[in-house]
Design a binder for these strands. Structure first.
Length: 298
DNA sequence: AGGATTTGACCCTC
DNA sequence: GAGGGTCAAATCCT
């Protein structure tokens, strides 16, 4: 782990500790307003340092045409329904079901009122084995059938390293990419993934700022042949398929990206995987994920 | 044979 | 009661 990463961890850890202090100090009888403000200032400063190191600035990549766009916004009525687990929604601008590196098992599909396409329900394959409660819903967008709206619920608590395995396997046969790459250039620290000739656009909305590795290790499966089952195949199969060198030629012009994408903050360029780039807003980074991931890769 | 998908029924919330 | 989410038996696939 290089010095920059250590500093980053230090700053984020400090921010967390300060937040804890502030939380303890929020007892009105125990501290003053000045104390609160001081702690808040320190927290902000700490996070600003860390984020500046992450340097999520699109201008850093002036020659890059961002093919992957990630943005966040609150999901307004997410908690009105039964589930209160955090959600995020990705809009995937590609004609195929997005695959996210985790293994999902489809457990249902429903026609949704007012929607042209059914919604498919997936849960983590390791739900029973490891008690992983992560689920996702996949639905084609009404406005643009080439967009899949993927809503994630809950975190993966399973010990699932398929996203890493994907890169590892692909490096063996040299079909998809060379290796998982942690990009530290320009202080961006995040893995990049790519598949030859593929480009997608993502829109992610979430009401909290967690980040699952699974959402950012995308691969894609072949176009389904029927409308009714276009969401059906287990992503695990696709991992194998990609491992055997399938490649798809899809181009998603930026002009087709949905108009409600809020921001297009960064694009990580020069990915060792080729054309597929992932970009992140700085808010995207879940430090636990980041450090776990860095540990994995170091 | 075992695991994944399909699909109608059921459950829960509004 | 409507609509969305989940269950589970039947079916399909490897």
């Amino acid at each position: 782990m290089d010095m920059e990463q250590k500093i980053l961890i230090t700053e984020l850890t400090r921010g967390k500790d300060l937040a804890k202090q502030l939380s303890n100090n929020l007892n009105p009888s125990s501290s003053s307003l000045e104390t609160h403000q001081h702690l808040i200032q320190k927290i902000i400063s700490s996070y600003e340092k860390a984020l500046s190191m992450l340097h999520c600035d699109a201008s850093l990549k002036p020659n890059t045409t961002p093919r992957t766009e990630v943005s966040y916004q609150p999901c307004k009525d997410i908690n009105k329904k039964r589930k209160t687990m955090p959600q995020r929604t990705e809009h995937v601008k590609v004609g195929w079901t997005p695959e996210d590196g985790y293994c999902w098992r489809k457990y249902g599909q429903k026609d949704i009122l007012g929607a042209n396409f059914p919604r498919a329900y997936y849960r983590c394959t390791h739900r029973h084995a490891q008690g992983c409660l992560a689920t996702k819903q996949v639905q084609k967008s009404d406005s643009d059938p080439t967009i899949f709206e993927v809503t994630y619920r809950g975190r993966h608590t399973c010990n699932q390293n398929s996203h890493l395995a994907l890169a590892s396997n692909s490096s063996k046969d040299n079909k998809i990419g060379k290796e998982l790459h942690v990009k530290t250039e320009e202080s961006i620290i995040f893995p990049s993934f790519s598949f030859a000739h593929e480009s997608i656009g993502l829109e992610i909305m979430e009401d909290d700022l967690f980040l699952d590795m699974g959402s950012f290790s995308p691969s894609f499966r072949s176009p389904a042949t029927s409308e009714s089952n276009y969401l059906s195949k287990s992503p695990c199969h696709m991992m194998n398929e990609f491992g055997h060198g399938q490649s798809h030629n899809v181009q998603a012009p930026e002009s087709e990206l949905t108009a409600d994408i809020i921001s297009t903050p960064t694009s990580v360029n020069n990915s060792p995987f080729g054309d597929f780039d992932f970009s992140l807003a700085k808010e995207d980074l879940d430090t636990n994920f980041l450090f776990d991931y860095l540990d994995t890769c170091s």
